[in-house]
Simulated scan of single mutants.
Amino acid sequence: MTTSTIENPSQPAVNKVLSPVRDFIESRGFPTQRHAYGLDTAFSAEAGSGGRLVILCAEYDALPGLGHGCGHNLIATAAVAAFMGAAKALLDLGVAGRVRILGTPGEEGGGGKVKLIEAGAFSEDVAAAIMCHALPLHQIKDGWSGTAGFRCIASRRFHVEFRGKNAHAGQEPWNGVNALDAAVGAYTAASMLRQQIRPDDRVQAVIEDGGAAPNIIPDYTRMNWGLRSPTIQRVDELCERVKACVQGAATAAGCTVNYKDAPSYMNLKVNDTLCKQYMDEMGLLGESILYQDDQPSSAGTDMGNVSHVVPSFHGMFGIPAPPDVPVHSRGFARAASTGEAHKAAIKSGKAMAMMVMKILLDADIAARIRSDFQA
Protein backbone atom coordinates (compact mmCIF):
# COMPACT_ATOMS: atom_id res chain seq x y z
CA MET A 1 0.00 0.00 0.00
CA THR A 2 1.26 3.47 -0.89
CA THR A 3 -0.11 6.97 -0.37
CA SER A 4 0.47 10.15 -2.35
CA THR A 5 -1.16 13.56 -2.73
CA ILE A 6 -3.46 14.59 -5.55
CA GLU A 7 -1.78 17.33 -7.60
CA ASN A 8 -4.51 17.76 -10.21
CA PRO A 9 -7.82 16.28 -9.01
CA SER A 10 -10.27 14.98 -11.57
CA GLN A 11 -12.21 18.09 -12.59
CA PRO A 12 -12.59 20.17 -15.72
CA ALA A 13 -10.11 22.88 -16.67
CA VAL A 14 -10.89 26.29 -15.20
CA ASN A 15 -13.88 27.45 -17.17
CA LYS A 16 -14.55 30.68 -18.96
CA VAL A 17 -15.51 32.60 -15.82
CA LEU A 18 -11.94 33.25 -14.62
CA SER A 19 -10.65 35.44 -17.47
CA PRO A 20 -13.73 37.72 -17.63
CA VAL A 21 -13.57 38.19 -13.86
CA ARG A 22 -9.95 39.32 -14.00
CA ASP A 23 -10.55 41.42 -17.13
CA PHE A 24 -13.51 43.18 -15.52
CA ILE A 25 -11.56 44.02 -12.36
CA GLU A 26 -8.59 45.30 -14.37
CA SER A 27 -10.87 47.36 -16.64
CA ARG A 28 -12.00 49.24 -13.51
CA GLY A 29 -8.45 50.23 -12.66
CA PHE A 30 -7.43 47.48 -10.22
CA PRO A 31 -4.43 45.43 -11.39
CA THR A 32 -4.71 41.72 -10.63
CA GLN A 33 -1.93 39.44 -9.51
CA ARG A 34 -2.18 36.26 -11.57
CA HIS A 35 -1.00 32.86 -10.31
CA ALA A 36 -1.42 34.24 -6.79
CA TYR A 37 0.39 32.36 -4.02
CA GLY A 38 1.78 29.89 -6.54
CA LEU A 39 -1.58 28.53 -7.77
CA ASP A 40 -1.93 28.68 -11.54
CA THR A 41 -5.60 29.70 -11.53
CA ALA A 42 -5.70 31.88 -8.40
CA PHE A 43 -5.63 35.67 -8.55
CA SER A 44 -5.88 38.65 -6.24
CA ALA A 45 -6.53 42.38 -6.39
CA GLU A 46 -6.53 44.96 -3.62
CA ALA A 47 -7.73 48.48 -2.86
CA GLY A 48 -6.97 50.82 0.01
CA SER A 49 -4.04 51.13 2.40
CA GLY A 50 -3.29 50.74 6.08
CA GLY A 51 -5.89 49.76 8.65
CA ARG A 52 -7.64 46.41 8.78
CA LEU A 53 -7.81 43.89 5.93
CA VAL A 54 -10.93 42.06 4.70
CA ILE A 55 -10.65 39.30 2.10
CA LEU A 56 -13.49 38.48 -0.30
CA CYS A 57 -13.27 34.91 -1.59
CA ALA A 58 -14.37 34.29 -5.19
CA GLU A 59 -15.00 30.76 -6.45
CA TYR A 60 -15.41 29.93 -10.14
CA ASP A 61 -14.74 26.24 -10.80
CA ALA A 62 -17.38 24.11 -12.46
CA LEU A 63 -18.52 20.51 -12.03
CA PRO A 64 -17.56 17.68 -14.42
CA GLY A 65 -20.37 17.22 -16.92
CA LEU A 66 -22.66 19.75 -15.20
CA GLY A 67 -21.00 23.13 -15.65
CA HIS A 68 -22.06 25.61 -12.97
CA GLY A 69 -24.32 23.16 -11.18
CA CYS A 70 -23.10 24.60 -7.87
CA GLY A 71 -23.48 28.24 -8.91
CA HIS A 72 -19.84 29.24 -8.56
CA ASN A 73 -20.42 31.77 -11.33
CA LEU A 74 -22.76 33.55 -8.90
CA ILE A 75 -20.25 33.29 -6.04
CA ALA A 76 -17.72 35.07 -8.26
CA THR A 77 -20.31 37.67 -9.31
CA ALA A 78 -21.23 38.47 -5.71
CA ALA A 79 -17.57 38.71 -4.68
CA VAL A 80 -16.71 41.04 -7.57
CA ALA A 81 -19.73 43.25 -6.78
CA ALA A 82 -18.68 43.42 -3.13
CA PHE A 83 -15.09 44.26 -4.04
CA MET A 84 -16.07 47.01 -6.47
CA GLY A 85 -18.49 48.61 -4.02
CA ALA A 86 -16.14 48.50 -1.05
CA ALA A 87 -13.11 49.58 -3.10
CA LYS A 88 -14.89 52.65 -4.47
CA ALA A 89 -16.14 53.64 -1.03
CA LEU A 90 -12.67 53.26 0.48
CA LEU A 91 -11.00 55.33 -2.20
CA ASP A 92 -13.70 58.02 -2.27
CA LEU A 93 -13.65 58.41 1.52
CA GLY A 94 -9.86 58.26 1.77
CA VAL A 95 -10.04 56.24 4.99
CA ALA A 96 -7.65 53.59 6.26
CA GLY A 97 -8.44 50.00 5.41
CA ARG A 98 -7.87 47.38 2.73
CA VAL A 99 -10.20 45.09 0.79
CA ARG A 100 -8.78 42.23 -1.24
CA ILE A 101 -10.56 39.93 -3.66
CA LEU A 102 -8.96 36.51 -3.78
CA GLY A 103 -9.78 34.06 -6.56
CA THR A 104 -9.92 30.63 -4.93
CA PRO A 105 -10.00 27.79 -7.49
CA GLY A 106 -10.64 24.11 -6.94
CA GLU A 107 -13.29 24.14 -4.20
CA GLU A 108 -14.99 21.15 -5.84
CA GLY A 109 -12.64 18.55 -4.41
CA GLY A 110 -9.34 20.26 -5.16
CA GLY A 111 -8.93 22.06 -1.85
CA GLY A 112 -7.85 25.36 -3.40
CA LYS A 113 -8.31 27.33 -0.18
CA VAL A 114 -6.35 24.71 1.76
CA LYS A 115 -3.44 25.24 -0.61
CA LEU A 116 -3.85 29.00 -0.34
CA ILE A 117 -3.73 28.73 3.47
CA GLU A 118 -0.53 26.70 3.23
CA ALA A 119 0.94 29.29 0.83
CA GLY A 120 0.25 32.14 3.29
CA ALA A 121 -2.81 33.78 1.74
CA PHE A 122 -4.47 34.09 5.15
CA SER A 123 -1.37 34.53 7.30
CA GLU A 124 -1.73 38.30 7.68
CA ASP A 125 -3.82 39.86 10.43
CA VAL A 126 -7.08 39.38 8.53
CA ALA A 127 -10.13 41.00 10.13
CA ALA A 128 -12.50 38.73 8.18
CA ALA A 129 -12.77 36.47 5.13
CA ILE A 130 -16.18 36.69 3.44
CA MET A 131 -18.12 34.92 0.69
CA CYS A 132 -21.68 33.98 -0.22
CA HIS A 133 -23.07 30.93 -2.03
CA ALA A 134 -26.26 30.50 -4.09
CA LEU A 135 -28.93 27.95 -3.20
CA PRO A 136 -32.38 27.16 -4.66
CA LEU A 137 -34.97 29.21 -2.82
CA HIS A 138 -37.03 26.10 -2.09
CA GLN A 139 -34.11 24.63 -0.11
CA ILE A 140 -34.08 27.58 2.30
CA LYS A 141 -36.62 26.73 4.97
CA ASP A 142 -39.65 28.63 6.23
CA GLY A 143 -39.79 31.10 3.35
CA TRP A 144 -36.52 32.91 4.13
CA SER A 145 -34.59 34.28 1.16
CA GLY A 146 -31.16 33.33 2.48
CA THR A 147 -29.15 32.06 5.44
CA ALA A 148 -26.42 33.90 7.34
CA GLY A 149 -25.11 31.17 9.63
CA PHE A 150 -24.74 28.37 7.12
CA ARG A 151 -22.89 25.44 8.72
CA CYS A 152 -21.07 22.71 6.80
CA ILE A 153 -19.62 19.45 8.03
CA ALA A 154 -16.09 18.13 7.45
CA SER A 155 -15.17 16.02 4.45
CA ARG A 156 -12.34 14.01 2.95
CA ARG A 157 -11.71 13.00 -0.66
CA PHE A 158 -9.29 10.42 -2.00
CA HIS A 159 -8.66 8.30 -5.07
CA VAL A 160 -7.90 4.59 -4.84
CA GLU A 161 -5.96 2.71 -7.51
CA PHE A 162 -6.02 -1.10 -7.63
CA ARG A 163 -3.41 -2.95 -9.68
CA GLY A 164 -3.65 -6.59 -10.70
CA LYS A 165 -2.66 -8.61 -13.78
CA ASN A 166 -4.15 -8.91 -17.27
CA ALA A 167 -5.26 -12.25 -18.71
CA HIS A 168 -7.69 -13.54 -21.34
CA ALA A 169 -11.05 -13.60 -19.55
CA GLY A 170 -12.31 -16.56 -21.57
CA GLN A 171 -9.25 -18.70 -22.25
CA GLU A 172 -7.24 -18.42 -19.01
CA PRO A 173 -8.89 -16.15 -16.39
CA TRP A 174 -7.08 -18.05 -13.63
CA ASN A 175 -3.84 -16.42 -14.74
CA GLY A 176 -5.20 -12.91 -14.07
CA VAL A 177 -5.55 -10.78 -10.96
CA ASN A 178 -8.81 -8.88 -11.33
CA ALA A 179 -8.55 -5.23 -10.27
CA LEU A 180 -12.26 -4.74 -10.96
CA ASP A 181 -13.06 -7.38 -8.33
CA ALA A 182 -11.13 -5.26 -5.83
CA ALA A 183 -13.08 -2.12 -6.74
CA VAL A 184 -16.45 -3.88 -6.58
CA GLY A 185 -15.47 -5.56 -3.32
CA ALA A 186 -14.46 -2.23 -1.78
CA TYR A 187 -17.74 -0.62 -2.87
CA THR A 188 -19.76 -3.55 -1.51
CA ALA A 189 -17.91 -3.59 1.81
CA ALA A 190 -18.42 0.16 2.25
CA SER A 191 -22.11 -0.25 1.40
CA MET A 192 -22.43 -2.75 4.24
CA LEU A 193 -20.48 -0.40 6.51
CA ARG A 194 -23.18 2.26 6.02
CA GLN A 195 -25.49 0.26 8.31
CA GLN A 196 -23.03 0.74 11.15
CA ILE A 197 -22.21 4.44 10.78
CA ARG A 198 -23.91 7.43 12.37
CA PRO A 199 -26.89 9.04 10.62
CA ASP A 200 -24.94 12.22 9.86
CA ASP A 201 -21.97 10.37 8.32
CA ARG A 202 -21.75 10.02 4.54
CA VAL A 203 -19.79 7.57 2.37
CA GLN A 204 -19.80 8.14 -1.41
CA ALA A 205 -17.80 6.47 -4.17
CA VAL A 206 -17.68 6.06 -7.95
CA ILE A 207 -15.60 3.76 -10.17
CA GLU A 208 -13.82 6.08 -12.58
CA ASP A 209 -11.91 3.39 -14.46
CA GLY A 210 -13.27 -0.16 -14.43
CA GLY A 211 -11.31 -1.80 -17.25
CA ALA A 212 -11.18 -1.74 -21.04
CA ALA A 213 -13.11 -4.77 -22.35
CA PRO A 214 -15.09 -7.69 -20.88
CA ASN A 215 -12.75 -10.30 -22.41
CA ILE A 216 -9.72 -8.87 -20.60
CA ILE A 217 -9.14 -9.33 -16.88
CA PRO A 218 -8.60 -5.69 -15.78
CA ASP A 219 -5.16 -5.02 -14.32
CA TYR A 220 -6.06 -1.47 -13.25
CA THR A 221 -9.11 0.23 -11.73
CA ARG A 222 -9.56 3.59 -10.06
CA MET A 223 -12.18 4.82 -7.58
CA ASN A 224 -13.02 8.30 -6.29
CA TRP A 225 -14.22 8.42 -2.67
CA GLY A 226 -15.91 11.18 -0.65
CA LEU A 227 -16.51 10.99 3.11
CA ARG A 228 -18.42 13.46 5.30
CA SER A 229 -18.96 13.85 9.04
CA PRO A 230 -19.74 16.77 11.40
CA THR A 231 -16.13 17.25 12.57
CA ILE A 232 -12.68 16.65 11.15
CA GLN A 233 -11.97 14.16 13.96
CA ARG A 234 -14.99 12.05 13.08
CA VAL A 235 -14.34 12.13 9.34
CA ASP A 236 -10.78 10.92 10.02
CA GLU A 237 -12.17 8.03 12.06
CA LEU A 238 -14.65 7.22 9.27
CA CYS A 239 -11.80 7.30 6.77
CA GLU A 240 -9.91 4.65 8.69
CA ARG A 241 -12.94 2.34 8.57
CA VAL A 242 -13.51 2.88 4.85
CA LYS A 243 -9.85 2.31 4.02
CA ALA A 244 -10.06 -0.96 5.94
CA CYS A 245 -12.83 -1.97 3.51
CA VAL A 246 -10.60 -0.98 0.60
CA GLN A 247 -7.61 -2.87 1.94
CA GLY A 248 -9.68 -5.98 2.65
CA ALA A 249 -11.03 -5.99 -0.91
CA ALA A 250 -7.54 -5.56 -2.35
CA THR A 251 -6.25 -8.45 -0.24
CA ALA A 252 -9.15 -10.68 -1.25
CA ALA A 253 -8.59 -9.97 -4.96
CA GLY A 254 -4.80 -10.23 -4.70
CA CYS A 255 -4.27 -6.64 -5.83
CA THR A 256 -2.00 -3.87 -4.65
CA VAL A 257 -3.61 -0.58 -3.64
CA ASN A 258 -2.45 3.05 -3.86
CA TYR A 259 -4.15 6.06 -2.27
CA LYS A 260 -4.08 9.60 -3.64
CA ASP A 261 -5.40 11.91 -0.95
CA ALA A 262 -6.97 15.32 -1.57
CA PRO A 263 -6.89 18.02 1.14
CA SER A 264 -9.37 17.45 3.96
CA TYR A 265 -12.20 19.99 4.42
CA MET A 266 -12.84 21.09 8.00
CA ASN A 267 -16.25 21.88 9.46
CA LEU A 268 -17.35 25.49 8.94
CA LYS A 269 -17.23 27.70 12.04
CA VAL A 270 -20.01 30.29 12.25
CA ASN A 271 -19.17 33.83 13.40
CA ASP A 272 -22.20 35.36 15.13
CA THR A 273 -21.25 39.01 14.60
CA LEU A 274 -20.64 38.54 10.88
CA CYS A 275 -23.97 36.73 10.58
CA LYS A 276 -25.76 39.61 12.28
CA GLN A 277 -24.09 42.10 9.95
CA TYR A 278 -25.20 40.19 6.84
CA MET A 279 -28.75 39.88 8.16
CA ASP A 280 -28.93 43.61 8.81
CA GLU A 281 -27.51 44.63 5.44
CA MET A 282 -29.70 42.26 3.45
CA GLY A 283 -32.68 43.45 5.49
CA LEU A 284 -32.02 47.01 4.30
CA LEU A 285 -32.19 45.61 0.75
CA GLY A 286 -35.58 44.03 1.40
CA GLU A 287 -34.45 40.44 2.06
CA SER A 288 -35.37 38.26 5.06
CA ILE A 289 -32.33 36.23 6.10
CA LEU A 290 -32.37 33.27 8.49
CA TYR A 291 -29.85 33.79 11.29
CA GLN A 292 -28.65 30.16 11.53
CA ASP A 293 -29.73 26.71 10.47
CA ASP A 294 -30.55 24.53 13.48
CA GLN A 295 -28.85 21.57 11.77
CA PRO A 296 -25.61 21.70 9.75
CA SER A 297 -25.78 20.95 6.06
CA SER A 298 -24.21 17.67 4.92
CA ALA A 299 -22.26 19.65 2.32
CA GLY A 300 -18.57 20.41 2.73
CA THR A 301 -16.40 23.35 1.67
CA ASP A 302 -12.76 24.37 1.93
CA MET A 303 -14.04 27.65 3.38
CA GLY A 304 -14.35 25.55 6.53
CA ASN A 305 -10.56 25.41 6.70
CA VAL A 306 -10.38 29.20 6.35
CA SER A 307 -12.85 29.60 9.23
CA HIS A 308 -10.39 27.81 11.53
CA VAL A 309 -7.62 30.27 10.58
CA VAL A 310 -9.34 33.69 10.42
CA PRO A 311 -12.83 35.02 11.26
CA SER A 312 -15.02 33.92 8.37
CA PHE A 313 -18.47 34.28 6.85
CA HIS A 314 -20.09 31.86 4.37
CA GLY A 315 -23.67 32.98 3.78
CA MET A 316 -26.32 31.69 1.39
CA PHE A 317 -28.62 33.61 -0.94
CA GLY A 318 -31.59 32.03 -2.66
CA ILE A 319 -32.25 32.04 -6.40
CA PRO A 320 -35.42 30.98 -8.23
CA ALA A 321 -35.40 27.33 -9.33
CA PRO A 322 -38.08 24.70 -10.04
CA PRO A 323 -39.11 22.78 -6.90
CA ASP A 324 -37.51 19.52 -8.06
CA VAL A 325 -34.11 21.09 -8.83
CA PRO A 326 -31.27 20.42 -6.34
CA VAL A 327 -27.74 21.81 -6.23
CA HIS A 328 -25.18 19.83 -8.27
CA SER A 329 -27.57 19.29 -11.15
CA ARG A 330 -27.97 20.51 -14.72
CA GLY A 331 -31.22 22.14 -13.64
CA PHE A 332 -29.43 24.28 -11.09
CA ALA A 333 -26.79 25.20 -13.67
CA ARG A 334 -29.62 26.56 -15.82
CA ALA A 335 -31.15 28.39 -12.85
CA ALA A 336 -27.76 29.93 -12.01
CA SER A 337 -27.50 31.41 -15.51
CA THR A 338 -30.69 33.49 -15.36
CA GLY A 339 -31.08 37.23 -14.92
CA GLU A 340 -32.95 36.69 -11.65
CA ALA A 341 -30.00 34.72 -10.26
CA HIS A 342 -27.60 37.46 -11.34
CA LYS A 343 -29.71 40.10 -9.56
CA ALA A 344 -29.70 38.00 -6.38
CA ALA A 345 -25.89 37.71 -6.55
CA ILE A 346 -25.52 41.47 -7.01
CA LYS A 347 -27.78 42.13 -4.02
CA SER A 348 -25.70 39.78 -1.89
CA GLY A 349 -22.58 41.56 -3.14
CA LYS A 350 -24.01 44.91 -2.04
CA ALA A 351 -24.62 43.54 1.46
CA MET A 352 -21.08 42.13 1.64
CA ALA A 353 -19.65 45.49 0.51
CA MET A 354 -21.41 47.17 3.43
CA MET A 355 -20.10 44.45 5.74
CA VAL A 356 -16.57 45.18 4.54
CA MET A 357 -16.93 48.90 5.20
CA LYS A 358 -18.34 48.42 8.69
CA ILE A 359 -15.54 46.00 9.59
CA LEU A 360 -12.94 48.47 8.35
CA LEU A 361 -14.50 51.60 9.88
CA ASP A 362 -16.02 50.33 13.13
CA ALA A 363 -13.42 49.13 15.64
CA ASP A 364 -16.12 47.77 17.96
CA ILE A 365 -17.59 45.51 15.26
CA ALA A 366 -14.11 44.31 14.30
CA ALA A 367 -13.35 43.50 17.96
CA ARG A 368 -16.59 41.54 18.37
CA ILE A 369 -15.83 39.55 15.21
CA ARG A 370 -12.40 38.67 16.57
CA SER A 371 -13.88 37.76 19.96
CA ASP A 372 -16.42 35.42 18.35
CA PHE A 373 -13.63 33.74 16.40
CA GLN A 374 -11.44 33.25 19.46
CA ALA A 375 -14.35 31.87 21.46
Rank of each mutant, 00 (worst) to 15 (best):
N8C: 07
T41K: 05
S155K: 11
T301Y: 10
C239Q: 13
D209I: 15
R52T: 00
S298P: 15
I232T: 14
Y278T: 01
M223H: 06
M355D: 10
M192V: 15
V80L: 04
D280G: 09
G110D: 01
E208M: 10
S297R: 08
I55F: 09
A62F: 01
Y37A: 03
A128W: 07
G94N: 09
E59R: 01
D364L: 08
P136D: 05
L39Q: 14
V356K: 11
G51E: 08
M352P: 10
A79T: 00
V325M: 08
T77H: 09
D142S: 13
A335N: 03
L74Q: 01
H68M: 00
A321V: 07
H314L: 10
T338Y: 07
Y265G: 01
P199F: 07
R52S: 13
L268F: 07
G67D: 04
D125M: 09
A212H: 02
P296C: 08
P311E: 13
A335H: 09
V177Q: 06
D302L: 10
D181M: 03
P12R: 03
A62K: 04
I216C: 08
D272Q: 14
M1N: 12
L268R: 11
G103N: 07
G65M: 03
G67H: 00
D280A: 12
E340A: 15
L102P: 03
G94S: 03
G143F: 05
Y220E: 09
D236Y: 12
L180V: 02
G50V: 06
L93T: 11
T273M: 03
S123W: 01
A36P: 05
A148P: 11
K165A: 02
L90G: 04
S4M: 06
A36C: 04
A179L: 10
W174S: 14
G50N: 03
T104G: 08
I217L: 02
I153Y: 00
L135C: 08
T273H: 00
V309G: 03
H133F: 08
K113T: 00
D294N: 11
W144Q: 09
D280N: 09
V160S: 05
I216L: 11
P296R: 12
